[in-house]
Amino acid sequence: MIRHLITLMWNRKRANGLLIVEIFLAFVVLFSVGSVGVYTWRNYQTPLGFDYQDVWEIDLNPGTQPRAEQFGTLQRILQRLRSTPGIVSVSRSVSNTPFAFSENSTTLDTGEGTPQGYGDVYDAGAELPEVMGLRIVAGRWFDRRDDAVSRRPPVVITELMQKALFPDGQSAIGKTVRASLGKPEEFQVIGVSGPYRAGGELSEPRPGFFLYVSPQDTARAMQVLLVRVRPGAGAALEKRITNDVRAINASWEMGVNPLPTQRLAQLKVNLAPPVILGMVCIFLIVNVALGLFGVLWLNISRRRGEIGVRRAMGATAGNISLQVLGEILVLTTFGLGLGLLVAAQFPLLGVMGVQTGVYLTAMPLAAGLLYLLATVCALYPSRLAAGIQPAVALREE
């Protein structure tokens, strides 16, 4: 049966060529959009590694105050915030807070010729795990022991960074690593944390590491704070914080951005490209479906005599319906074969650095959708062909 269908398709290769090209292009579009969808879904399913609920980002602007006086003012603000009812904990940070559309990244390695880990850099105080619910899986977080000046400052790396630096499964605790932060500098790993995906749910999980900011650190001017507040805190607490900052120094300005609000804003921006691609894909698939349906309808109209002869020779309505359905599935297979040859190049060439599993998942999804589309488009025309009566068809010829 299959051999017969292939022979029929070959005998009408000119008429079917355009349809095969159309199916091929539809597969390429579906595969591309499917890859984006699978990639986005996998990222969304990966844990963030922190709790953003009831966390506020406070951005402070010292205004015209001399730089030499800013650290003292910042310390007074921190002291006031930690004593404010409704605030659970406060940690110093930098601009690349979660969902902030900001990143700071560099390379970390363990020496010449060793594996490197490229990831995000976060400056954090000792309170960050309490503020963000960050999980420590090995070693410890920063504490007062790290306030003393040492030849190798402490660093906490994420699990992904540990895997990148030590692919053989070694523990990173106590090891010396190097980072290029303006100039090469050595650090000692004191802890390994869980994931910390400041880029949000739709971003690709990346390695990262944390640098310690001691309470006495004046080298880095950081006027960004992460504050955990009690559940239900709202405008009243925000107004009190604003008034307290102005009371400490009237030249300082501040803005409060709840992380849940920033998360929603980031999701809207990051979801825009996949949604647009999906809409374009739907438009193209609808056109492909209309094309398949129209071609099948036209073929049946032109082949009424052939179908009438088959019915007169004893072919049942089911045989005719299966033949029409089989022909479109064979054509779909030809188009998919060409499309799979193109799609197979993506994981082989490592296009866009996406994991191979994303492409291997998108391929069968795109193929399955095309087979489903071809089957649905062929159902009604196949029923029309099955309903042709031999006498009527032969009289029309």
Rank of each mutant, 00 (worst) to 15 (best):
I320Y: 11
L8E: 06
A221T: 14
V392I: 05
Q266L: 12
T64L: 09
F334P: 02
P98R: 04
Q223S: 12
W252E: 15
G72R: 12
P381G: 02
P66N: 09
Q355L: 11
Q266A: 07
Q79H: 13
V189A: 03
K175H: 10
P260S: 09
P347K: 08
L271M: 14
T356P: 05
V330L: 14
G232H: 11
N104A: 06
Q345E: 06
S32T: 06
G350K: 14
Q75V: 11
R145A: 12
S89F: 02
N319W: 07
L237H: 06
V28P: 04
T106S: 06
L267M: 15
A362N: 11
L373F: 05
P62N: 06
D59C: 04
D143M: 12
V55E: 05
A343Y: 03
Q345C: 04
G314E: 09
M132S: 10
D109C: 02
E22K: 15
L5W: 09
M254G: 13
A367L: 07
G17S: 11
S83N: 12
I136Q: 08
L329N: 13
S91F: 10
T110E: 02
K268C: 10
A236I: 02
V189L: 03
I77K: 04
A374W: 10
P66T: 12
S105Y: 09
L341F: 11
A374V: 06
Q53L: 09
I285S: 09
L329R: 13
S83Q: 14
G368T: 03
S89L: 05
R240I: 01
Q65N: 11
L181I: 10
V94I: 14
F24Q: 10
D109T: 01
G255H: 09
E204M: 03
M1W: 14
P98Y: 10
E185K: 12
E112G: 04
M161C: 00
A198Q: 10
A343Q: 00
L226F: 04
K268Q: 08
I2A: 05
